[in-house]
Design a protein around this nucleic acid. Structure first.
Lengths: 232, 232
DNA sequence: TGCCGTGATCTGTGATCACAGTTAGACTTG
DNA sequence: CAAGTCTAACTGTGATCACAGATCACGGCA
């Protein structure tokens, strides 16, 4: 094989199957809170919207059900799971433990490109939240970008994947409110925590980074719990 | 509805679909190390073995692929992922962090029935490993039982589910060797760590429980790494 | 003897059909 | 007019068919 080396550089180009794309679409809807807890989802209807047969949707949904980001009730209805306050508290505790750990790891293992990505994400969200009329859905998206810029800096793909699954569960509960309520964003807690996390990671202070992420998560969770929309 | 209350006690009886059963079977094969890294898996062949059509197998496999417990190569072949030494180290670090955390939580939240289950599991594995000719596959199974008895005592379903996913990835690498090599079991490290973990959880010492689990995981991982079967 | 082309067979992916169970709405009945 | 009943349209699940691409072994050419 005497071909130019350029051909050797093409990466695997991971499977762009229809099922994969359907999964990405549904996962994004969940994470950003555009699907509310309790909302039903029909395979055939979703297939129609996505312009494919139900097969790719079936695969996507079965994955999300496995992740407990969706559930199929005994009556054969797919829906976003309803979360009790107790379950939400458990989820929040786990998120604080794992995402806090990831932030601490990020402070230890970040390289310069990680720092650049984190700084960029932090600034973008700060600007958006200080705007006269903040675009809430966009703020939710930027918040996600910042958090994952931090977690990616841990250089632990497995950790990042676990956190992604956690966000899949938390998204509908957390971001549904955030998309509609400017209150918490206006309060500016998240912005301050993000700045603290960024500084901690830049200076390599793992404990501070962990504390900042924990405070950010707890702040958002307490806000949700105080609004009292959760059952039990 | 004037039926006896007994009927109200039947729990949801979660969907016993064929896909669910296929998933359970394949997951068990992976966790116990009966499927080796690199081993290929044909949907149709698996469907034949399980006595169903390929549809339930497809669902099970797509779930396991989502969990990265299986992978489908660009050449359309499903196989157990090969793990590099670096990936295995990452996985081990994450396991130590998360399973250690779960053990600490177990020490804080365990009730008497948890303690009984842990004690029972610890004793069963100790007896098996002290037998003249230990049944290695059974020892692997008992090891799993003990660990999950501990994690269940954390009373955090989300944490347990995350750990299950981690074991799905680690199983083929760790238990493949353990099923064939009596060396590590004979050395008795695991037994001692388990006893320490049990005692720590009984006395409510979270730090000690965490340290014990960490040592157990690290011991097994170092054993695998020292055998040098991993690529890169 | 060594190498390359070639076709049969296998792979996962997607679409379609079939089915049992549920739901909701319209119709009938008291 | 209200309540019960029955049908028609939906639900997810499973099986089967169709297809493009990859693999591998066989046979012919150099």
């Amino acid at each position: 094989m005497n071909l130019p080396t350029a051909l050797n550089l093409v990466e695997p180009l991971d499977r762009q199957t229809l099922g994969e794309r359907a999964y990405a679409r549904l996962a994004d809807l969940l994470m950003s809170g555009r699907l509310a807890p309790g909302e039903k989802l029909s395979l055939r209807a979703a297939a129609d919207v996505l312009g494919v047969s139900i097969m790719p949707v079936r695969e996507a949904v079965s994955r999300l059900v496995a992740d407990k980001a969706l559930e199929v009730t005994p009556n054969r209805a797919v829906r976003v799971p309803l979360m009790s306050a107790a379950q939400f508290r458990d989820l929040t505790k786990v998120r604080i433990a794992i995402e806090g750990h990831a932030a601490a790891q990020a402070a230890a293992h970040r390289d310069s490109s990680d720092l650049a990505a984190i700084a960029r994400a932090e600034e973008a969200m700060r600007l958006e939240s200080e705007a006269a009329v903040p675009d809430l859905p966009r703020a939710v998206e930027l918040n996600k970008t910042f958090h994952f810029a931090v977690y990616e800096a841990s250089h632990s793909p497995i950790l990042v994947e676990i956190i992604r699954a956690l966000w899949l569960k938390a998204g509908p509960v957390i971001n549904l409110d955030l998309r509609a309520n400017p209150d918490r964003l206006a309060k500016g807690d998240a912005i301050r925590f993000h700045a603290a996390v960024r500084k901690a990671i830049e200076s390599g202070d793992g404990a501070a980074a962990q504390a900042g992420i924990a405070a950010d998560i707890k702040g958002a969770a307490d806000f949700i719990l105080s609004r009292g929309g959760l059952a039990e």
